[in-house]
Design a protein around this nucleic acid. Structure first.
Length: 277
DNA sequence: AACCAGGGGTACC
DNA sequence: GGTACCCATGGT
């Protein structure tokens, strides 16, 4: 079906924004996406603001529309950034125009970001694909595998986790899965908690520190004010903000600004390396 | 082939 | 509350 999206929807930028690990380029110049037990191919139709997706209108309305967060006005959020008062973020937001914060599954997001620690993005993607193929359900009519459910992941052994390249994160994943399967970790009930309570609840899990918890808030629970600080954002804050980011200006959307900063700064670094070679 | 990756736990202070 | 050090493995 054809989808009309006027502004702030750039598939490549979202795919490379570091929030999702199961978007892969397909042979139509678009992306193959696995999420929520479904698979989708989506690409730009060639006309500006028009996209072609291989799903039914029902699937689009019931799932993908919300997944892509099309009900949030990102253009309006970018316009909160003053060119004069915060020129660095202004440039970053212009550069990152088209990024949206996806509505991803909390469980998949939590596990994915536990896996992510001290791994490169290609290595994260590889581990998640292996784990999904090992324990997830095959998606009808495709050769893709859904992300393992709580029940499915709880049946994966330590040895099998190691075989997926999890390294020292194996024990974190194993414990989290066992806790969830035993009913000691109920992510569904975490929706009731406010941001701070949710952050603290997630950090009680072994292997979940402030950064992984913040990513889970932002990308899995759609708490748009969560502000994950990784190595890149740490450099941005030190180098561009004298260590003090003006959170009060962008409340409650600091997480969106964080994504612009992350995407911009990381790409600047990548590009400067290319030139250097 | 070394180097480092969207960090966290632990042991100190 | 802050800091130093270790952690397994894979992509480049």
């Amino acid at each position: 079906m054809k989808i009309r999206i006027e502004d702030d929807f750039d598939l490549q930028k979202i795919a490379e924004s570091g929030q999702c690990f199961r978007w892969n380029p397909n042979d139509k110049g678009g992306y193959s996406i696995v999420a929520g037990g479904r698979a989708l191919n989506i690409s730009n139709s060639g006309t500006e603001g028009e996209f072609e997706a291989d799903c039914s209108e029902k699937d689009y309305d019931e799932y993908w529309k919300h997944y892509f967060d099309l009900e949030t006005d990102y253009k309006g959020l970018r316009e909160k950034v003053s060119k004069e008062e915060d020129s660095f973020l202004y440039v970053a937001a212009e550069y990152g125009k088209g990024i949206r914060i996806l509505n991803q599954d909390p469980w998949e997001t939590l596990i994915s970001f536990i896996i992510s620690q001290r791994k490169s993005i290609p290595a994260i993607k590889s581990s998640i694909e292996r784990l999904s193929a090992l324990a997830g359900s095959r998606i009808d009519g495709t050769d893709k595998y859904a992300f393992p459910t709580v029940d499915q992941l709880s049946k994966v052994s330590v040895q099998e986790l190691n075989d997926c390249g999890m390294g020292y994160r194996t024990e974190y994943l194993y414990q989290t899965a066992q806790n969830a399967a035993a009913g000691a970790l109920r992510l569904e009930e975490f929706n009731k908690l406010d941001d701070q309570q949710l952050l603290e609840a997630l950090m009680e899990l072994k292997g979940v520190g402030i950064k992984v918890a913040s990513c889970t808030l932002l990308f899995g629970f759609h708490r748009l004010n969560a502000f994950p600080i990784d190595v890149w954002i740490d450099r941005v804050l030190k180098n561009e903000y004298n260590g003090h980011f003006p959170f009060e200006k962008y409340d409650p959307y600091n997480g969106v600004m964080q994504q612009y900063l992350f995407f911009y700064y990381r790409n600047m670094e990548k590009n400067s390396k290319k030139v250097g070679k």
